[in-house]
Amino acid sequence: MLKQKLAALGHPSPNDVALSNRKEFASTILWLEDQKIRLYTIEDRDKLRNLQDMKLWEEAYLKYCSDLSMPALDTQLEQLTWIIGHAIRLEYLDDPEQYGSVQAEDIGGPKRNGTATVPQKVQTIFDGKINVDDKEFIAAVRQLATKLQVPHHPNHLLQLEAISRIVHERLSVTAKDRKPITGTPFPFDKGNDVVAGTDPKLDYPMRILRLLQIQNLRQLQTQINETIVAVQSLTANPKTDTKLGKVGR
């Protein structure tokens, strides 16, 4: 995905960008600033050009990040993704009309409409009462996310959904009253299940997704059980009559 974005921006060698190399990373950042973002004047960019002395470069990069008002992101990958995204946004804003005619279906990508980016949960809660695209609103979501250490996502509404989940699972009154789970923990990667036999890289994320799915199912099943118990309090009347019993020959 990163490579495609770099290619779209016209990077000369998008396939050779190796994230494992900090120097490579630095030169990619420099290229983005030089060619696309142009936040600084040419003279001010000199410090970012210090690829020979990485110590100086790191200082300059730290300042650059805050000047870009990039949110606090932990990994190199997240940072680069954000900066590339920023560059693409700027590129687009330079001449929005040029891209106006491009439709997702024309280029074979997944179909999208305006509302798809707003998660349904958020949509039903706010239902037009709050302008979810308001700058202040966005800033508040970002701030909350930083505080709760929710990873950055370009769509602040998706991030809001993640925040709501954390609040619900960990911070709400019911969550605090919940008894700690006892018993032997089931090791994450030791089940009898074959997940992605062919690709070990897929194994880990798939296990996580499946666990989340199982958690959802468990919640549903618990609700079903609670409903049955509630109905039972009205209907149940177990009877036995030992006089009826007869042991066979």
Partner: peptide, 8 residues
Amino acid sequence: VGSKGIIP
């Protein structure tokens, strides 16, 4: 064989 239950 031929037993009967105690639940009416």
